[in-house]
Simulated scan of single mutants.
Amino acid sequence: MTPKIVFDNVTRRFDLKGGSFLALDRFSLDVADGEFVTVVGPSGCGKSTALNIAAGLLKASGGEVTVDGKPVEGPGPERGMIFQQYALFPWLSVRDNVEFGLRIKGEPPARRREIAERFIDLVGLGQFADALPKTLSGGMKQRCAIARAYAVDPVILLMDEPFGALDALTRVQLQDQLLETWSRERRTVMFITHDVDEAVYLANRVVVMAAGPGRLQEIIEVDLPYPRTEEIRLSPEFTAIRNRVWHAVYHQQPAQSHG
């Protein structure tokens, strides 16, 4: 099966005063169509850098990222990006925020309303469609951001710690909601997180990155059935995979210098 997203020896340097910083070092990864991949690693390992290159928000210094075999040369409607910060327009209602990308695409008003309402209902915000973001909780704002990303029908979702700022209960609820939506829509998801439990709970595979410079450390298969449930989260099988990921993240060998 042809991979959906391919990172091929991707390197990224940032220019600093008096030199440069190697954030990503020859990072290679294939993500299959419809796969849910989570990416974990210590701070400074290049997780967000890799995601931003896939989104077309950053250029690689070396190597390339392709989607369906075509090089990523900038942002595109087939890739939806969801950030940790909600990035909602504060002066627009939930409905208007969700319709925003559809308006840019030139969808007629009736079609915009139909699509927006579908995804607002999907994320459980139907009764808040006319509310402004300032009246919503953090979890509700993030659900609105997810609905907006889904509404423009991307085949790929790129998610950069979308639940990182939320309380534990809201985080678990949104994890379950995201998986429920993914199981219906089967989009390709690449999801960055610092949370090992979250990484294992969501994913088909967990990609562990190493820092200094950022590179691929290990890929760990999550051989647990969907739908994921609290019973699975508390199972010995989950604990075993979680412990393996934890060890891979927090007991890494020092990087070899590449000059």
Rank of each mutant, 00 (worst) to 15 (best):
194 H>R: 05
66 T>Y: 07
181 T>S: 03
57 L>I: 03
228 R>I: 06
62 G>E: 03
90 P>K: 03
168 A>E: 05
237 E>I: 03
232 I>K: 14
161 E>K: 01
155 V>A: 15
51 L>F: 02
180 E>D: 13
255 A>V: 07
188 T>I: 00
200 V>L: 05
100 F>A: 10
33 D>M: 06
65 V>T: 05
189 V>R: 05
14 F>N: 02
212 G>E: 13
234 L>A: 15
193 T>V: 04
169 L>Q: 15
212 G>H: 15
144 C>F: 04
137 S>E: 03
87 A>W: 09
230 E>H: 13
244 R>E: 02
79 R>M: 08
232 I>F: 08
7 F>R: 04
235 S>Y: 07
114 E>Q: 06
255 A>Q: 07
12 R>M: 02
82 I>K: 13
192 I>D: 04
164 G>R: 12
206 V>E: 02
182 W>F: 08
41 G>M: 00
258 H>M: 02
168 A>Y: 08
59 K>A: 01
89 F>R: 09
127 Q>F: 06
211 A>E: 06
226 Y>I: 02
72 V>N: 14
20 S>F: 13
110 A>F: 01
238 F>V: 00
44 G>N: 07
79 R>D: 00
245 V>F: 11
22 L>G: 01
143 R>F: 05
169 L>R: 15
74 G>C: 07
191 F>L: 00
168 A>S: 05
54 A>S: 12
108 P>V: 00
236 P>Q: 07
182 W>I: 02
47 K>D: 08
39 V>W: 05
5 I>A: 10
252 Q>C: 05
64 E>A: 10
137 S>T: 12
96 D>Y: 05
53 I>A: 11
254 P>F: 02
248 A>V: 14
245 V>R: 14
33 D>A: 14
238 F>M: 04
189 V>A: 14
152 V>S: 10
140 M>R: 13
